[in-house]
Design a protein around this nucleic acid. Structure first.
Lengths: 123, 123
DNA sequence: CTGGATCCCAAGGGATACTG
DNA sequence: CAGTATCCCTTGGGATCCAG
């Protein structure tokens, strides 16, 4: 459980943030929606996060029972992460986040071409 | 725009976190779903956050065009916050967060009564 | 009533190097 | 491959006081 939020006294949204309220948690969980992923895959899928942060966030998600970490006793090491049954209940929420993000990106791209001051930043 | 996430290079979920990725942002926005609220109301509705944090988060949401701050030139001061048209597109997502939080709270309460080690914490 | 200003500590989080 | 460990800077965020 994230120690930052109190699901007892807060509103329902705050309760959700107990679990989802980490820097990279929604992103990692989203990537796990389409099946188990290895550590390296998650790193490649989340290039803006450092390896260290990915590790830490995965640990917390595991503690909270949202994901399951499986170690295969092989050489070289093989570990994968998958959503627990509990974690899968987050799917509608995560898809909703993706959906809004899609629209948001379109909006931002639109704004960029409309506002010279912003698009000039790249030129 | 929150400087912590990069909506350009990140996945769609990460784009959403550009806007929603603040400590209290989802909670504040959720409370604004049922109409404009004054500063004091938001403070009372979000007792786990300090006045300072509420101010800061509201400022960022305003910068991002998600909410609109209206100052009524009265004495004593009267300010209210409401969702912009853009901000209202977050409604499904916020409702989804509330819904999941409800279930989560029920689950936690259930676990507490089932696991002596946890419920003993309050005794 | 609605904040702003300041102080200050804890936590977040990046870079890098190392390891079974 | 899948992490740990360490260093160190930045940000978050609480407490408190001040103000129009």
């Amino acid at each position: 459980m994230s120690r930052k939020y109190d699901w007892r006294t807060g509103c329902d949204v705050e309760a959700t943030l107990c679990v989802l309220g980490g820097r990279w948690k929604p992103v990692l969980l989203f990537h796990l929606l389409d099946g188990p992923k290895r550590f390296g895959e998650l790193c490649r899928l989340t290039p803006n996060a450092t390896q260290r942060m990915i590790t830490l966030q995965l640990r917390e998600l595991e503690e909270d029972g949202v994901i399951i970490r499986t170690v295969y006793p092989e050489v070289p090491p093989h570990v994968d992460y998958r959503l627990s049954e509990f974690g899968q209940t987050l799917e509608p929420l995560l898809l909703s986040m993706r959906s809004w993000g899609e629209d948001f990106k379109r909006r931002q791209s639109g704004l960029q071409s409309e506002i010279p001051e912003l698009s000039r930043e790249t030129g």
